[in-house]
Design a binder for these strands. Sequence first.
RNA 1: GGGUCGGUAGCUCAGCCGGUAGAGCAGCGGACUUUUAAUCCGUUGGUCCCGAGUUCGAAUCUCGGCCGACCCA
Length: 508
Amino acid sequence: MNQRNHAMTTEPQTTLPQDENQIITERRAKLKAIREKGIAFPNDFERKHLAANLHAEFGEKSHEDLEAAQIHVAVAGRMMLKRVMGKASFATAQDVSGRIQLFVSNDNTGEAAHAEFKHYDLGDILGAEGVLFKTKTGELSVRVTKIRLLTKALRPLPEKFHGLTDQEQKYRQRYVDLMTNEETRNTFLIRSKIVQAIREFFARHDYLEVETPMMHVIPGGASAKPFVTHHNALDMPLYLRIAPELYLKRLVVGGFEKVFEINRNFRNEGLSTRHNPEFTMIEFYEAYRDYRYLMDFTEKLFSEVARKVLGTTVINYQGKELDLGQPFHRLTMVQAIQKYHPQFSDAQLNDRDFVINELQDLKAKYKPEDGLGGLQLSLFEELAEAHLFEPTFIVDYPVETSPLARASDTRPDITERFELFIVGREIANGFSELNDPEDQEARFDAQVAAKEAGDEEAMFKDADYVRALEYGLPPTAGEGIGIDRLVMLLTDAASIRDVILFPHMRPE
RNA sequence: GGGUCGGUAGCUCAGCCGGUAGAGCAGCGGACUUUUAAUCCGUUGGUCCCGAGUUCGAAUCUCGGCCGACCCA
């Protein structure tokens, strides 16, 4: 019965425009001929060598040394370039590590095999065996004795010199982008190294890596609109998580005193060069620490990751230089506003009416019901945020916009919270955690009231989370870092889509 | 949501003061045994994003729409 239900649901499907063309037709005919001769997609070629390893090991050897050594190799890869010259040909094969040149000739490969090779197309995947040698110009190459077509490519590669440049196609058909653009491959190699370096950092600090639910009954831990899905068996709505925060802190309650999770969050918001609906965050929590410790810890993390991945802490972002190895600036919101707008006095920026006036003059978005802190935050976002190019911690966030953060002991209207801005973008958010269950419950109630008053991004009340706090959360500090934005910074990427393999796109 | 730019051959792009579409690469055929985006000769290939309007005639001008990139909110 359930199966019937499933069968009756509409299956998502994609239909691509009819795009057969002369080239594809030609290649289909070639494939048909290959099928008629035998196995068209063989899987018995034994690849023994990678291009980059061969260059590293034998690239410096002389022509004579190579001839004397007679090094037999078996390489495989996609044919990216092809130069046919009658009785001999050159081809460039690309594997995961790089490229190696193949020399195919009547003399070494045989006339029949060479004749067949001439009909191979750019993009085809080849396997070749032969002996290493150096060409006249000194390029390490394989003098091919055997060559086979392993996979016929039916679709042509983009133009060989410019590669794929159309941004939309680079995102939609990332596989084509990856096979043609070294820069794209490099971006995602760096991304992988960044994540690896982060894991190493946390492992060395004795953190436990955990996985908490992606599907939440109550979406919590951030102020954002969630995606909704439906659980059939339980017949109830579920929300894709907007943050793992509340679950990670439950783990600290349970006694895992240092935890982190690197995974996706989902926020049902617009798309931009800085926003993708699913994005990767690391969140981490450590007991018996506060937000000041986190700031120092974050500086260490960023400079270590940069040094490991790029070999330096000095990075160039969109033509401007910054150093992740220097201590980051630390400013309050008011100080940050004054840094770029010194005409405002402390008295003015602490005058509610004055701030509202400024916001109105700037035609800025703000919530009129906000207290001074919330209004200052709106003004900060309007006047200062985009200018914070060098790493800067902004501190003293108002209680009303920080419902999970511990309030200051000296100023009850602000929290022990910071956000880190680099190149004008928010990249991290951390605070001393609110571990007073009664205060937390009151803050949730205030959020619920705001939601009922129409604030779609206000938080839901999570009663079990309050119950967990009632068992006792030790004093704890926690932080989230946007991995995509960090990768943008370290790969000099202008758009978040450039650092996400398959960014969200409107369906074709 | 607003602004700017763009959508022409498989790819990279010309053509856009209206006269019915071009180059390079890729493909196909030919020459060429050390090329490097090989070169040379020949050649196939188009829903000029979609729709409407203006006009004798629209890739080109006008309007509407779709899609994308960038900037702004």
